[in-house]
Amino acid sequence: MFKAKIYVNYKPSVLDPQAEAVKTALSRMGHDNVTHVLYGKYFELTLTSTDKASAQAEVETICDRLLANVNMETYRFTLVPVPVEVD
């Protein structure tokens, strides 16, 4: 079993109004040190795959087809092996 930790964000070229709003709010609060805000989504998927390559391929398909809109979003993920619980 693998756990996929997936991050989906807007591509750098796309203006993200939500990230801009967070940045404006931070600056209003006096956090002028913050120069950039990336605002995204985080998913955790648990897969029953036994080998990492097939898990990798499946998560890529899932991201391309559903979790990210590749017109405007990019994604990255990590795969962590999960020990199978034995009753």
Binding site: V14, D16, P17, Q18, A21, N69, N71, M72
Partner: peptide, 8 residues
Amino acid sequence: TLQWNTSL
């Protein structure tokens, strides 16, 4: 694609 309105 359709994004959030700029006013959010």
